[in-house]
C-alpha cells in the first residue's frame, strides 16, 4: 500500500538554525507511527516542518488521499488542514482566551458545514468537555486541555493526525484518557503520527516507529520490535527516567 504520508530527505529548521538533516519517514493509511528520541532530537521540528511551521531547506513531503498525490512541501497550515491533515502542537495547543465551544468551532474552519452536529458527536466521546463549553480554554486542567486540543483537531475531519507529546505533563489518569481516545481513533481508521517522551507507552502501540537523534534517523521498525531491541533499550529506555515510568493502565488500550 502506498504511504499516506511520505517524508523524504527532509532538512529543515528555523531561520538560521538547521535542525533536521535528511530525515525520512512514512505512514501507511490507518497505521499509528511513533517518533521517539532524546530531548532536542528534532521530533517537534519534524512535525512542524510537515505542517508548514518550520523552514524546509530541502527534501519532500508527499500526502496521498483517495488515489491523489499531493506534494505538500512547504504548504501553509490552513491548506493542509483543508486537505485532510491536522496537528496538535506540543505546547500552546488551545486558544486560551477563547471558550471551549469557540475552540471547537474554530477547528471546523476548514469544514464549516454541519460543524455544530460534528461538535455534538465529538462531545459524546469527549464528554467532560461538555460541562465546560463556555469556560475559557485557558482555565482548563492539563488533561481537559489536551482532550480539547485533540477534539479541536478532529473538528476538521482529518484522515491524518500529527500529535506532539499528548501525554506530557499529565497525571497518570489523564494520560490514560488521552491514550484511550487515540486507541479509539485508531480503531476508526485514522492515521496517526505521534511524538512521545514516554517511549515504552507509545512503542508498545505503534505499528511502526522511528528513533531520531541529532536531527537524523537512527533506528526504525515496528514499535514492539524496537521495544525489544537491545540498542534502543540501552540508548533510550534503559536506566533513564523512562524505565521507571510505569506502563499505563491496560484499560487505556481498549
Amino acid at each position: 500500500m502506498l504511504p499516506m504520508l511520505q517524508v523524504t530527505g527532509l532538512s529543515a529548521g528555523f531561520e538560521d538554525v538547521p535542525v533536521l538533516d535528511g530525515v525520512s519517514m512514512t505512514a501507511t493509511p490507518g497505521s499509528t507511527v511513533a517518533i521517539v528520541g532524546p530531548n532536542g532530537a528534532g521530533k517537534s521540528t519534524l512535525l512542524k516542518a510537515v505542517y508548514g511551521l518550520a523552514r524546509v531547506r530541502s527534501g519532500r513531503v508527499v500526502f496521498r488521499r483517495d488515489g491523489a498525490e499531493h506534494d505538500i512541501t512547504g504548504w501553509p497550515p490552513h491548506r493542509l488542514t483543508a486537505l485532510g491533515l491536522n496537528y496538535v502542537p506540543q505546547t500552546d495547543n488551545v486558544f486560551a482566551a477563547l471558550s471551549v465551544r469557540e475552540n471547537l468551532l474554530l477547528g471546523a474552519t476548514a469544514r464549516p458545514r454541519q460543524a455544530l452536529a460534528r461538535m455534538e458527536r465529538l462531545l459524546v466521546e469527549f464528554g467532560p468537555l461538555r460541562t465546560v463549553l463556555d469556560r475559557p480554554a485557558g482555565a482548563l486542567s492539563g488533561g481537559q486541555r489536551q482532550s480539547l486540543a485533540v477534539a479541536r483537531a478532529l473538528m476538521s475531519e482529518p484522515v491524518l493526525l500529527l500529535l506532539d507529546e499528548p501525554s506530557a505533563g499529565l497525571a497518570p489518569s489523564a494520560v490514560g484518557t488521552v491514550f484511550g481516545h487515540l486507541a479509539r481513533l485508531r480503531s476508526e481508521g485514522l492515521t496517526i503520527v505521534i511524538v512521545e517522551q514516554n517511549a515504552r507507552l507509545v512503542l508498545a502501540r505503534a505499528d511502526n516507529a522511528y528513533v531520531l537523534e541529532g536531527g537524523r534517523n537512527r533506528y526504525e521498525g515496528p514499535g514492539p520490535e524496537l521495544l525489544q531491541d537491545a540498542r534502543v533499550v540501552e540508548l533510550y529506555l534503559g536506566g533513564g527516567a523512562h524505565a521507571t515510568t510505569p506502563a499505563t493502565p491496560a484499560a487505556a488500550d481498549q
Binding site: F95, L106, A108
Partner: peptide, 20 residues
C-alpha cells in the same frame, strides 16, 4: 472568531484552518 483566535495564537489559528 477567527480574528480573536489569530490574536490569541497565530500559529494555532493557521493550523485550525484559518487563512492568515
Amino acid at each position: 472568531r477567527s480574528m480573536r483566535a489569530f490574536a490569541d495564537n497565530p500559529e494555532l489559528a493557521a493550523v485550525a484552518g484559518v487563512d492568515v
